[in-house]
Design a protein around this nucleic acid. Structure first.
Length: 425
RNA sequence: GUGGACGUAGCUCAAUGGUAGAGCAUCGGACUGUGGCUCCGACGGCUGGGGGUUCGAUACCCCUCGUCCACCCCA
């Protein structure tokens, strides 16, 4: 045992019953996103590194320190996707999607990879459900997206009262640039109060100083310039419209002017949904996203506005208090057989029932009836079919309801109908 | 990348410088073809790995691997 190599750090096997909870979340995600008329997009897990560097941003933490990057056998640098927006945009451009339809709505679901130190709610292979819309600039779609994210969580069983929806706007790149200078000016006057990290950020990305968790810096940030003040009329109007659409949709949200996203491609509206309850540690952001109106063109496509979000599946799972066992599928029937004749009889019978949609487990080990019923009980089967020489001779099978302990005598011909009658599915 | 805690049976955890134990789970029996409760029994461990101190290490020391928590960052 001890010489068995473990899984790669931060990457886990997911087994039953836990996997049932995953399936539940994935099914709900698909159902809601399909209801919003999104279609599924599947892109490769590996992308050429420059695509990711150019979209996510060269100076971001993700690109600098977290990507799984290596040389392919032909020498090309490839990376495992740390997020899926870059791939979606690549596919959008490569397939000339903008020529085929004015508006494209895609969703995706799958593993992402970031080489970080693992902790609660943060793994190196983690999973996201995400959605992207291309071709819409209206603030209404910003609000719709946020509402969709909240609806997604609601369907999964996380009430909106357990959520905090934070929104902010980054404005146009030009507006952000002037704000960045304003921030530099402000913090430069307080250099002595900044820690090492923040001083570094003063050069690279002063916006990040705002969401520092250091109390001293937070105190300093209170009086810092506010981005909203640097915005032009158009940006302000857009953001205000988003807010009013959100309240029309009944979404409780808070404007968090310190909210900054870690990926460079964001412009305009950004948002984040945090869980107030649940079993999450410090990583309580369930999902987040925003507008990236310049990304399509900066990667060589036309000027198409876009917006999207990603939801962390592991974090949703943590926020969902219900135990994984509750999501397991119901076993309708356990077939207990006594003797070789019964065994031989049961194999094709079980097969037909299964083809008819009856979830059935057939005992293949020679075992006492007692232990077979124990097994049926442990599997939480609803019914047990008991077949031995007596039943085969009389043609009357014993169908036992494991909850009520009632036993019904049925013929083979009646079996399927009787099962349906006793188990509602 | 930084700081800290912890690795003993499938799981949750004991043990003390004297060579490993309980509960749960699993399997069997009491109950010969009738499950959940009870009782009895069995299975199960190179105490994460390596090195050191010692007559003797699960315990003390060092290294390593892993897990967890927090920072950073993010989903």
């Amino acid at each position: 045992m001890s010489d068995l190599p473990p899984t790669v750090k931060g990457m886990n096997d997911i087994l039953p019953p836990e996997v049932s909870k995953w399936q539940f979340v994935e099914e709900k995600a698909r159902a809601v996103l399909e209801a919003f008329a999104y279609r599924e997009l599947r892109t490769p897990i590996l992308e050429y590194t420059p695509l990711l560097v150019r979209s996510v941003g060269e100076d971001t933490e993700v690109v600098e320190k977290q990507m799984y990057t290596f040389a392919d056998r032909d020498g090309q640098s490839v990376s495992m996707r740390p997020e899926n927006t870059a791939s979606a945009v690549r596919a959008y451009i490569a397939r000339s999607q903008w020529n085929r339809e004015p508006v494209t709505r895609w969703y995706y679901l799958g593993p992402m990879f970031r080489h970080e130190r693992a902790q609660r709610g943060r793994l190196r292979q983690f999973h996201q459900v995400g959605a992207e819309v291309f071709g819409l600039a209206s603030p209404a779609i910003d609000a719709e997206m946020i509402a969709m994210l909240v609806a997604l969580l609601a369907e999964m069983g996380i009430k909106s009262s357990d959520l905090e929806v934070a929104v902010n706007t980054l404005g146009e790149p030009e507006e952000r640039a002037s704000f960045r200078e304003a921030l530099r000016g402000y913090f430069s006057h307080h250099l002595d109060k900044l820690d090492e990290d923040s001083r570094k950020r003063l050069q690279t990305n002063p916006l990040r100083i705002l969401d520092s968790k250091d109390p001293d810096i937070q105190a300093l940030a209170v009086n810092a310039p506010v981005l909203l003040d640097s915005l032009g009329e158009a940006s302000k109007r857009h953001f205000e419209a988003v807010l009013s659409h959100l309240s029309a949709l009944g979404i409780q949200s808070v404007v968090d002017t310190k909210l900054v996203r870690g990926l460079d491609y964001y412009t305009g509206t950004i948002f984040e949904v945090k869980a107030k309850l649940g079993d999450l540690g410090a990583q309580n952001a369930l999902g987040g996203g925003g507008r990236y109106d310049r990304l399509v063109s900066s990667l060589g496509g036309p000027e198409v506005p876009a917006i999207g979000f990603a939801l962390g599946v592991e974090r949703v799972l943590l926020a969902l208090a219900e135990p994984a066992e509750d999501f397991e599928p119901v076993l309708a029937l356990f077939i207990a057989v006594l003797g070789e004749k019964a065994q031989a009889w049961a194999l094709p019978v079980a097969h037909r029932l299964r083809m008819g949609g009856v979830r059935t487990e057939l005992e293949h080990r020679p075992a006492s009836l007692k232990s077979q019923l124990k097994r049926a009980d442990a599997l939480k089967a609803r019914l047990a079919l008991i077949v031995g020489d007596n039943e085969l001779q009389s043609g009357k099978l014993l169908l036992r309801d494991l909850a009520t302990r009632q036993q019904h005598e049925v013929t083979e011909a009646e079996l399927a109908a009787k099962i349906r009658q006793l188990v509602d599915f």
